[in-house]
Structures are given as C-alpha cells and as structure tokens.
C-alpha cells in the first residue's frame, strides 16, 4: 500500500514494504500541483531556457526515484544494458507506470545516427497547458525530458561500470568506478541530452510532444563495439 499502511509506523522509511504502485490520485490534483510547480519556477527565472532547465531539474529528481523504484519492482533488480533495450524500457514500462499507457511512438532519427524520439500526442503534463505567444517554444515537457534523462544516464553508467569491471577486477579501481556511477546519478557527465519539442501534426489542433534523446558519442561507440 502506498501512503504508509494505515497508521502503522516504521522507524525508517526503508523498512516500509514497497508499494505496488496501484494507488491513484485524481488527474486534476496532479495538474494543479504541476501548474504550481511551473508558476513558482516562472518567478525564479529571467528567460525560457532557464525555466526549462529548472523544470528539467525537477523531472530529473523524479526520474532518479522512479528509476530505483521500477528497478526493484518491475525488473527484479535487473537493468537494461543495450541501447534499444533501454529505449523500449522507457517507452513502455516507464511510460506505463507514470502515465498509464505506453508512449505513442518510439522512432530513430532519420538525419542523425545518435538521435531517438519518443512522441506523445497529448503528453500528460501539457494537457492543460497553453503557451502564451510571448513564451515562444517553451514546452512543459521539459519536466518529462528530465525524467527520461536520468534513466538514460544511469542505465548506461551502470552498463559502463559492468563492462569495465569485467575486464579488471581489482578493488581500488572498482571503488573508483562505483564513485563514477554515483556521479552520473547526480548529474555529472551525462551520456545523453534530452529535450522536449512541440511538433505540429496535420489535421490536429494541438501539436504533439516529442522527446528527443541525443546520445553522447561514446555511447554509440560502445554500442558498436558490442555489435
């Protein structure tokens, strides 16, 4: 049960049994909360880029926790190590848990090898949002981009760690690499840049939202090595 099983107290938050994630709140409750998040952040910034970055940060904080939760609950502590595996995991499992459905589409960029796109006709966070004209390309999907970013960063870092430790197993090095893994989780040395964009769709009143994932070069090299 989510929400602290009925007045039962635990000494430590980690002693609580893991919720099964079935509990729900109303969509409006989330929309109200999200709107406050955006409005508050608007008061702290001077421009759109900064606002998107701050939303992304908030999403990143959510993503880090969702990642841990899902790895325990949905995947029996296993993580994806391959590029496509991770992408489809985000597209289906993560999306399903967070937004109640798999994402509308997952595509590979046609112009660049290192780009992938997850698209959603009506992204939950953009549902009740209309962007004023003077805010140009601002997209609240930045929040979701933050969530995705963490997933990419962490999974690949762990993968990287496994890969390197399999060829060298001496302890000092191992510790150093564990440190690296933590660093990536904290946001340093990201192997992917994730951004949110509006894409107009013909015959549709509202544009769809596309989350663009651009992997760092070393990721693709690694992937190529693995064949």
């Amino acid at each position: 049960m989510i929400g602290a099983g009925k007045i039962k107290q635990y000494a430590n938050v980690l002693d609580k049994p893991l919720s099964r994630g079935r509990q729900e709140v109303s969509l409006s409750a989330f929309a109200f909360l999200f709107s406050e998040l955006v409005q508050y952040n608007q008061t702290r910034v001077d421009n759109i880029a900064e606002l998107e970055r701050r939303l992304e940060d908030a999403g990143y904080a959510v993503g880090a926790r969702v990642l841990e939760l899902l790895c325990h609950r949905e995947k029996g502590n296993r993580r994806e190590t391959r590029l496509l595996g991770i992408l489809s995991f985000v597209h289906s499992t993560v999306w399903k848990v967070l937004f109640g459905k798999v994402a509308d589409s997952l595509e590979k960029g046609t112009e660049h090898e290192d780009e992938y796109m997850i698209s959603e006709k009506e992204l939950l966070v953009n549902r009740f949002i209309s962007i004023p004209k003077d805010m140009g390309t601002f997209n609240c999907g930045a929040f979701v981009a933050g969530i995705v970013k963490v997933r990419m960063g962490y999974d690949l870092a762990v993968f990287h760690w496994l890969f390197v430790t399999s060829i060298s197993s001496n302890w000092p090095k191992l510790n150093k690499l564990l440190f690296l893994e933590k660093g990536v989780l904290d946001g340093a040395g990201f192997p992917a840049v994730v951004t949110a964009h509006f894409v107009p769709v013909e015959g549709q009143h509202r544009p769809r939202t596309t989350i663009l994932i651009k992997f760092a070069e070393e990721v693709l090299q690694r992937e190529a090595r693995l064949g």
């Binding site: 989510i2 929400g3 919720s19 994630g21 509990q23 729900e24 709140v25 109303s26 969509l27 409750a29 989330f30 909360l33 999200f34 998040l37 908030a58 904080a61 959510v62 926790r65 969702v66 939760l69 848990v97 967070l98 937004f99 109640g100 939950l124």
Partner: peptide, 10 residues
C-alpha cells in the same frame, strides 16, 4: 486519475 507515485514524487 493518474498514478499516485508520479504525484508523490512531483
């Protein structure tokens, strides 16, 4: 409705 975890974490 939406998943309560998304709400909680947000």
């Amino acid at each position: 409705r939406v998943n309560a975890e998304l709400f909680t974490l947000t």
